[in-house]
Design a protein around this nucleic acid. Structure first.
Length: 921
RNA sequence: GCGGGUAUGGUGGAAUUGGUAGACACGCUAGAUUUAGGAUCUAGUGCCGCGAGGCGUGGGGGUUCGACUCCCUUUACCCGCACCA
């Protein structure tokens, strides 16, 4: 019997499970290391070969760190709440808890098949009440805290209430969208409802009216990506923006800290850039314009990054939804304004941004210029967004492209206020030039003018320096069933937190989870009440449970705390996080925010949760195409397709062989319409076309790891995934390349066995040559794991095994180290060989990783490449300790060198010890 | 438009601080062995050329004894964001 990967896999996976080999303790004298994979959502279709790329990489690193003497936390769990399960439940009639459990079982089976070293005792599932108890608990903490801008951290809302009772909010330092000032006396006179409303403007988890994509015909709220061109993706029904009172999280309070924290993270540049972009800090000024009305005066607040251009303002623009619009619009313009607002409302955000035509309506009102006192017409237009800045701008057509286009379109005056003649290539957006037609700013450079005008605005009390962020507070309510219920009950419509002792507030078991009449599914539960008070009927979004799961792994079954202080003090934070780029802003931003919040409350010891992060690339599928003749049941082979009028159709990749030939019998069984079809062949074969695409069911290009493992074994699968290329790269999966790795594993086996599969280990001392081969590999593998270059590790192993094979080396001294070295990559094979070497210990946990001994790598003679004029011409052996002069003498005496140098002048002789010789003639 | 990234044989890729470009593997070619099998082994395989040799890391330019690597410039593709005031 030769190497039987299946038997080896089954034997060792069983034994690891029996021995609980990968269990991790929180009590250890060893240094800790925390390796985390991104939380998978257990979808119904299971894993394809692209998913495990990151899992294999993190597993190799975890196993390596273990053998390097670290106590390694390497857990796995499931982000089990979410829309797909709910959607599937509605379609299939099965309860989401049932399908979720099935899907999790499939995922676990598949993950274990790969031989990943997770400590399943620490499994975390977000839909488990024992887990979401603490998600609810953190939510209540946010509800009961506000952000103090003086301490620059979250503080208890009770402190704020105490302050209000003492001084009102006259000197409160808090991050808030509250604009009303009140005294202590006034506070005391407020009703409970009023107080609650005011506090909502301070709480970090708060309720406000926000807009959802509402689809009347489907009777449900849709996610942004379910809305296409203003209609629902399913069915194509109209979608409108509907206001709903919903929970939000005040992530904007943390904008500055989330931004500045990025600097120290060991993440990829692109990821950091995406986060910075998302936060979108811009510095400018807040300016208040007066708007005079017949009855009363209004204040119009705008944000601008170019306050220096204030003398170029020729009109103002408000977002159509701006609260002032209806108050200031004149009678004559009222109708036009209303019509425009209606039109804007009917479009989704995406569509409003997609439309490039210039549109807008004059309100009839005028603002007063703060310096010149001139009347400035106020318009409304879609190009001003309600949720960026203040939802209003001062328009400066001379220095802003969009304002310019708008002014040109509507024939509005343009005043040049910035002389850019010294900057011939500058665009309007560039902050350069000399101010003109600008009163006290004339002659100043833009930069200085900005400073000066802010100074003046502050002096006059009508403006100030202001930092603005693109980042918006996160809508935290979903009108869905399959999520965490809010631990909030309403008494006379005033939200009250449930006592902590009542947590978890369990999701009731509901038969019919379809939303009805725009109400969340839980609204149909008759006794969804707490002590007679109605409970909130919305549920939390998917990112709730995944914003802190990495902390729960440290102490997964703690019934009294989300995680004990001891566990947190030991594990601290995640040392290595591996996952895809699809979470670049969403998950990673929320998780950082929650973590910082918990840090403020002194629950976690670190400011940032994920020190180092690696993005694994996507493994794409190789799609196969057949070419159907239009309007005929006829399929044409690839190279003949241009002779017909054809359309390409995806055909299942597993019906195609290595040579790109389609199995016609199989395809007839697969698709009934092929039975009577005519196939136009070339050389008697039907050749398919290929294209590299994202792996997906609909493209019929999915490769299942189960099948690959069945055929080649788990170790081969793991190593091949790594061998495909750098971990961050996107690359297509081509199963045919796997043979190289399979061959390597057989060769490794054969170093230990003869043709009859008898062990042939001998105890002779190793030769220098053998030691050099081994230690070259040890060195390379150690270095390459450290820099996450797993593909080159595999190459190093192949070279080592090839070389040992050539040397016919079967020596214990060499092979034992090789097995240890291989253990993180091919743990099943390594365990089997380790046992055959006579050990009862485990090579995945009881040994230390081999370290290089440089002595074995030094040579007395080095084979130097000799270049003449930078071109390599010959290789010459030189003593390792040769000096430049001796090297020159020896090299120049060489025949081949002489041939090239001949009688030419020797200009320069460069000798780089250990590297190269270069002769310039 | 802005931001980030990538570009090397037929293919995946290697070259860690500037020092032999193409490691390792797939594929391909030829041969050996064999109860012809998608097994194993041996040799070859960047391009041009019979050869000496020349050319060669998306294109152009530069720095250097020496550039895939550093600088300038340009093109193509991928990803993210996008009326951000």
């Amino acid at each position: 019997m030769a190497y039987n990967p299946k038997a080896v896999r089954e034997k060792w996976q069983k034994r690891w499970k029996e021995n609980d080999t990968y269990a991790v303790s929180n009590k250890s004298s060893k240094p800790k290391f925390y390796v985390l994979d991104m939380f998978p959502y257990p979808s119904g279709s299971g894993l394809h070969v692209g998913h495990p790329l990151g899992y294999v990489a993190s597993d190799i690193y975890s196993r390596y760190k273990r053998l390097k003497g670290f106590n390694v936390l390497h857990p796995m769990g499931f982000d089990a709440f979410g829309l797909p399960a709910e959607q599937y439940a509605i379609e299939s009639g099965k309860h989401p808890s049932a399908t979720t459990a099935e899907n999790i079982a499939t995922y676990k089976r598949q993950l274990n098949l790969i031989g990943l070293s997770f400590d399943w005792n620490r499994e975390v599932v977000t839909s488990d009440p024992a887990y979401y108890k603490w998600t609810q608990w953190i939510f209540l903490k946010m509800f009961n805290h506000y952000y103090c801008t003086e301490a620059n951290k979250a503080q208890a809302i009770s402190n704020l209430i105490a302050e209000f009772e003492k001084d009102g909010n006259l000197k409160t330092a808090a991050y808030t969208d509250n604009e009303k000032k009140f005294t202590a006396q006034e506070w005391k006179s407020f009703s409970e409802q009023e107080r609650s409303d005011i506090l909502m403007h301070y709480r970090l988890a708060y309720r406000k009216v926000s807009f959802v994509n509402w689809c009347e015909d489907l009777g449900t709220v849709l996610a942004n990506d379910e809305v296409i061109n203003g209609v629902s993706e399913r069915g194509g029904y109209p979608v409108i923006q509907k206001p709903l009172l919903q929970w939000s999280l005040r992530i904007t309070a943390y904008a500055e800290r989330l931004l500045s924290g990025i600097t120290d993270l060991d993440w990829s540049e692109s990821l950091k850039a995406q986060q910075e972009n998302w936060i979108g800090r811009s510095q400018g000024a807040k300016v208040v314009f007066k708007v005079e009305d017949e009855s009363e005066d209004h204040q119009l607040e705008i944000f601008t990054t170019r306050p220096d251009t204030i003398f170029g303002v020729t009109f103002m623009v408000l977002a159509p939804e701006h609260h002032l619009v209806n108050q200031i619009a004149t009678k004559e313009q009222e109708q036009a304004v209303r019509a425009y607002q209606e039109k804007a409302k009917s479009k989704s955000n995406v569509d409003r941004q997609a439309g490039k035509e210039i549109s807008g309506v004059f309100t009839g009102a005028y603002a007063k210029h703060p310096f010149t006192g001139e009347n400035i017409p106020i318009w409304i237009s879609e190009y001003v967004l309600i949720d960026y800045g203040t939802g209003a701008i001062m328009a400066v057509p001379s220095d802003d492209e969009r304002d310019h286009a708008f002014a040109s379109h509507f024939g509005i005056n343009i005043i040049e206020i910035c002389d850019k003649s010294e900057y011939p290539n500058a665009s309007k957006a560039d902050k350069v030039g000399k101010m003109i037609n600008s009163d006290f700013l004339n002659g100043m450079e833009v930069k200085d003018a900005i400073e000066k005008v802010i100074e003046k605005l502050t002096e006059k009390g009508i403006g100030q320096l202001k930092v603005n962020y693109k980042l918006r507070d996160a809508n935290f309510s979903r009108q869905r069933y399959w999520g965490e219920p809010f631990p909030i009950a309403y008494k006379d419509d005033i939200p009250h937190a449930l006592p902590v002792g009542e947590l978890p507030l369990e999701l009731p078991d509901v038969e019919d989870i379809k939303p009805v009449g725009g109400k969340a599914p839980l609204s149909k539960v008759a006794d969804w009440k707490y002590e007679g008070m109605p409970l909130d009927t919305d549920t939390m979004p998917g990112n709730a449970g995944s914003s802190w799961y990495f902390l729960r792994y440290m102490d997964p079954s703690n019934p009294t705390e989300f995680c004990s202080k001891e566990a947190l003090d030991y594990w601290q934070d995640v040392d290595l996080y591996i996952g895809g780029t699809e979470h670049a802003v969403g998950h990673l931003m929320y998780a950082r925010f929650w973590h910082k919040f918990l840090y403020d409350l002194a629950y976690v010891p670190t400011q940032e949760p994920f020190k180092k992060l690696i993005n694994q690339g996507m493994i794409q599928g190789e799609s196969a195409f057949e070419y159907k003749v239009v309007n005929e049941n006829k399929y044409v082979s690839y190279n003949l397709k241009d002779e017909y009028n054809t359309i390409p159709i995806h055909v299942a990749i597993n019906l195609v062989n290595d040579k790109g030939e389609l199995d016609l019998e199989a395809v007839k069984a697969w698709r009934p319409e092929h039975v009577d079809a005519e196939f136009v062949l070339e050389d008697g074969k039907y050749i398919v076309g290929h294209e590299v695409e994202k792996m997906s069911k609909s493209k019929h290009n999915v490769v299942n790891p189960d099948d690959v493992i069945e055929e080649y074994g788990a170790d081969c699968f793991r190593m091949f995934e790594m061998f495909l290329g750098p971990i961050e790269n996107h690359k297509p999966w081509q199963t045919k390349g796997i043979d190289g790795v399979a061959k390597f594993l057989r060769k490794t086996w054969n170093l230990f066995h003869d043709v009859d599969d008898q062990l042939i280990i001998d105890d002779e001392p190793a030769t220098d040559k053998e030691l050099k081969v081994l230690h070259t590999c040890i060195k390379k593998v150690n270095e390459d794991i450290e820099r996450f270059s797993f593909n080159t590790c595999i190459s190093a192993f192949m070279i080592c095994v090839n070389d040992l094979g050539e040397l016919k080396c079967h020596k214990r001294e060499i092979l034992e180290d090789l097995v240890k070295l291989l253990s993180p990559f091919a743990p099943h094979l390594a365990e089997e060989l380790w046992e055959r070497l006579g050990y009862t210990t485990s090579v995945v946990k009881d040994v230390s990783y081999p370290e290089v001994n440089e002595e074995y790598l030094t040579e007395s003679v080095i084979n130097y490449p000799v270049s003449i004029n930078g071109k390599m011409r010959v290789k010459i052996d030189l003593p390792a300790d040769v000096n430049s002069d001796d090297a020159k003498r020896i090299v120049l005496a060489n025949d081949i060198v002489q041939k090239w140098v001949e009688d030419k002048d020797l200009k320069k002789f460069i000798f780089v010890p250990g590297r190269i010789v270069n002769i310039v003639v």
